[in-house]
């Protein structure tokens, strides 16, 4: 009943009456200075949605507040750990990230534009793949495991320096076929519950499903710190959980399917700000 959301004030009244409500009209300003775009006009390629919302909008007042100040945001500890490994020389070349990139702030354009086509390797790369590309090619170091602690810490660092920048992943050119594949996956119903991403995050955002307040399933907040498991969570791990919840056989973290899906879902959020590490329940 998407019309609830589109219905504006009436929608809010219904939601507020039924459960512990979230303030869906709130704005997010981090540390009193960084303005985050949490609602925007939908990108042109989206047919069934006119406004896009960050997952932050649908969280409870308490959870929302945790993201407004870095001292309260439990995800920021991991950003600090990411900074530690930024300057750590590793591998046969004895180099750190800092040796090639100086400050992490110099890579502020990365988080908003990934996943992104890489001309040399002729593939769409997620940030995790690019980080591992640097580790193996430039540093002669071991790759990190997908969605491992070290990887998510580094991703959190690269997100934190890009907060406030607007998501803008490219979906045309050589990335287009991967994007189409991701779109196909987004609308495919899976599992014995026979549900697609769109059933929950396009048709029902703003509605409660039991105690869960459904968001649009946007990725601009990743990696996200979840209160539920008290750690940073990667995009693919989240996808995996959602697919599992349809009683389906999931795809693997780091699989081509999830890379394609990540590109597509990221493009649905073009126009929202990067806000990672975000806080979610």
């Amino acid at each position: 009943m998407k019309s609830f959301v589109k219905g504006g004030a009436a929608a809010l009244a219904i939601i507020a009456a039924s459960q512990v409500g979230a303030d869906e009209d709130a704005n997010l300003i981090i540390n009193g200075e960084t303005e985050i775009t949490v609602r925007a006009d939908a990108p042109e390629h989206l047919d069934n949605v006119s406004t896009i919302y960050s997952g932050w909008v649908f969280r409870s007042d308490e959870t929302q507040a945790l993201q407004m100040d870095d001292f309260d945001n439990p995800g920021m500890i991991f950003v600090d750990q990411g900074r530690d490994s930024w300057v750590l020389a590793e591998g046969s070349e004895g180099k750190s990230c800092a040796d090639c990139h100086n400050e992490p702030e110099s890579l502020a354009n990365v988080r908003p534009t990934y996943p992104k086509w890489n001309d040399e390797t002729e593939e769409v790369r997620t940030i995790a793949m690019q980080i591992n590309g640097c580790r193996t090619e430039q540093m002669g170091a071991e790759p990190w495991k997908y969605d491992s602690t070290s990887m998510l810490n580094m991703e959190a660092l690269l997100s934190s320096v890009a907060r406030g920048q607007v998501m803008n992943v490219a979906i045309d050119g050589p990335a287009q076929s991967m994007w189409e594949q991701g779109k196909e996956l987004y609308y495919t119903r899976t599992g014995q519950l026979d549900l697609s991403c769109a059933n929950c995050h396009e048709d029902n955002y703003g509605n409660y499903i039991r105690a869960d307040h459904l968001s649009q399933g946007q990725t601009n907040g990743f990696p996200v710190y979840r209160l539920k498991n008290a750690k940073l969570n990667g995009v693919h791990s989240r996808f995996k959980g959602c697919v599992r919840d349809t009683r389906a056989e999931t795809y693997a973290v780091g699989s081509e399917e999830f890379i394609a899906l990540e590109l597509y879902v990221a493009s649905r959020g073009n126009g929202l700000s990067v806000e990672g590490p975000a806080v979610r329940n």
Binding site: T190, G191, D194, T246, R247, A248, E249, T250
Partner: peptide
């Protein structure tokens, strides 16, 4: 969107309950 509660065929990638496995 309502699931079928008495149906066992015609699914895409059916899993072993909520394990995520086939």
């Amino acid at each position: 969107i309502m699931p079928a509660f008495y149906r066992v065929s015609g699914f895409t990638r059916p899993g072993d309950a909520f394990t995520g496995k086939a």
